[in-house]
Design a protein around this nucleic acid. Structure first.
Length: 273
DNA sequence: AGGTGCGCCTGGAGGC
DNA sequence: TGCCTCCAGGCGCACC
């Protein structure tokens, strides 16, 4: 599911439920998600207080007392659900539950591509999931930083923007949307973009992400904000999922779909060159 | 260094 | 109603 805007929205919702609170009771309904949960998962979380929450790329980092960090990745269908009062009866794909003195959090994940880990502060820089992450799109993007990661790449700009080692947080939807705004075709070679195209991407990427965050993300199938509310940015998609429809910008082009490494890219052949 | 395809899972949509 | 195939927001890996 979730790309940067959905992860950011999920992180904020999670923060509203657990920031500054003690994790009174933690339960895992199964021993694994995509990967096994770390040894002693529930016991290590239980009794700790949440000092802060951060998002890095598509990861949520929950900072806990005692120097422990709880890392959450939502995979394709992972959802955080928060509520006040007592934990409700669980549904089929509810895998992890957290209770505080005032409410609860449920981690639900039908496809179970999500995963969680726990690590101590000294292990953060070498954490296998974090150490190779690239530019943070909302804070690290500049013409020079983007130009530098794209430089010399013969792969498509679509593949490059999806490559979390170069720029971390974009997924299939927002890459298509950002390329549309920047008027760049997804098949273009990443290293051959002009300076003005890079400049347009540097503007388009944070812009589309910020708008999506403001709308609470994009609900396609599984995604909801932790409050249960949908994410409304889907209504603002210009090209994603609109194959065959007239381009909303030029009104003449017909949105095309190409498959790159098995994944769909959508673009307007008239607007994007 | 690039690409492609597959597997990990489940469920929804659409065809018959 | 059911069965079948295809597709899906991610990501790691084997292989060319």
């Amino acid at each position: 599911m979730p790309e940067l805007p959905e992860v950011e929205t999920s992180m904020r919702g999670l923060a509203s439920a657990i920031q500054g609170r003690e994790l009174k009771r933690v339960r895992a309904m199964r021993a694994d998600l995509r990967f096994p949960l770390p040894a002693g998962f529930s016991d290590r979380l239980q009794g700790r207080t949440v000092e802060g929450l951060e998002r890095r790329a598509k990861y949520i980092l929950v900072r806990l007392t005692g120097g422990l960090t709880w890392l959450i990745h939502l995979g394709m269908s992972g959802r955080l659900i928060v509520g006040k009062g007592h934990l409700p009866s669980l549904e089929k794909h509810d895998h992890v539950t957290i209770e505080t003195t005032s409410g609860y959090v449920i981690y639900q994940d039908a496809r179970r591509f999500g995963f969680m880990d726990l690590f101590e502060a000294r292990a953060e820089l070498s954490h296998p999931r974090l150490k190779d992450l690239g530019l943070e799109p909302l804070t690290d993007l500049s013409i020079s930083s983007l130009a530098s990661v794209l430089k010399g790449r013969s792969s498509s700009v679509k593949a490059a923007l999806l490559d979390q080692r170069l720029i971390a947080g974009l997924g299939n939807i927002y890459v298509s949307e950002a390329l549309f705004r920047a008027k760049v075709r997804p098949e273009r070679a990443a290293g051959m973009l002009t300076r003005s195209e890079i400049k347009r991407l540097v503007k388009a990427i944070p812009e589309v992400l910020a708008e999506a965050i403001k709308a609470g993300g994009s609900s396609l199938r599984d995604y909801r904000q932790p409050s249960g509310e949908l994410g409304y940015f889907k209504a603002s998609w210009a090209v994603y999922g609109r194959e065959g429809q007239a381009c909303i910008h030029c009104r003449k082009g017909v949105v095309a779909r190409v498959v790159q490494s098995g994944r769909s890219s959508f673009y307007c052949p008239k607007c994007q060159r």
